[in-house]
C-alpha cells in the first residue's frame, strides 16, 4: 500500500501513513488554509487501508495545536478508524499532549467520549 509522508509546516501537520511498518501518526500544528483539501488524501488513504488493515493499529496524535475546522476533520478520521475496529480489528489511539496543555488533554478526552476506540493518554 502507498505510503503517505507529509512534512509539517507552521500551519499543517506532519503526517505519516505507513501500513507496512504500521505507523499512523499526526503531529505538529493543524490550521491549513483549506482543511478539506489538505485532509482529502488522508481520508482516502484510510478508506483504502480499511480494506486490508493490520490486526492491530495504533493511531498516534501528537498535536501542539489545531483549529476548529481541523477538529471536525480529526473526528472524521477517528470515525473511519472506528469503522475498522467495528469490522473486528484492534484500534488504539495514542493521544499525546504537553504536560501543562489542558486544552489538548481535554480535546483527547472529548474525542474518546465521542468514539468507541480506546484512548491511551500520554503527557510529555
Amino acid at each position: 500500500m502507498e505510503v503517505i509522508k507529509i512534512k509539517g509546516t507552521e500551519d499543517t501537520p506532519n503526517v505519516i501513513l505507513d501500513a507496512e511498518n504500521n505507523i499512523i501518526e499526526f503531529s505538529g500544528r493543524s490550521l491549513p488554509e483549506d482543511v478539506v483539501t489538505f485532509y482529502a488524501p488522508v481520508l482516502q488513504w484510510i478508506e483504502e487501508y480499511a480494506k486490508s488493515p493490520n490486526p492491530k493499529t495504533e493511531v498516534i496524535f501528537r498535536l501542539e495545536y489545531f483549529n476548529t475546522a481541523s477538529s471536525k476533520i480529526l473526528l472524521d478520521i477517528l470515525l473511519k478508524f472506528e469503522d475498522i475496529m467495528n469490522d473486528g480489528n484492534e484500534i488504539v489511539v495514542q493521544w499525546y499532549f504537553q504536560e501543562d496543555d489542558e486544552d489538548m488533554e481535554e480535546a483527547g478526552e472529548e474525542y474518546s467520549e465521542i468514539v468507541d476506540i480506546p484512548f491511551e493518554m500520554h503527557s510529555y
Partner: peptide
C-alpha cells in the same frame, strides 16, 4: 461543541460552525 462536531458538516469554505 461535541454535538456540533458530531452533527455539523464542513461548509465549502471549511467552516465547521465551531
Amino acid at each position: 461543541f461535541k454535538k456540533q462536531m458530531r452533527e455539523g458538516s464542513l461548509s465549502e469554505k471549511g467552516g465547521a460552525g465551531l
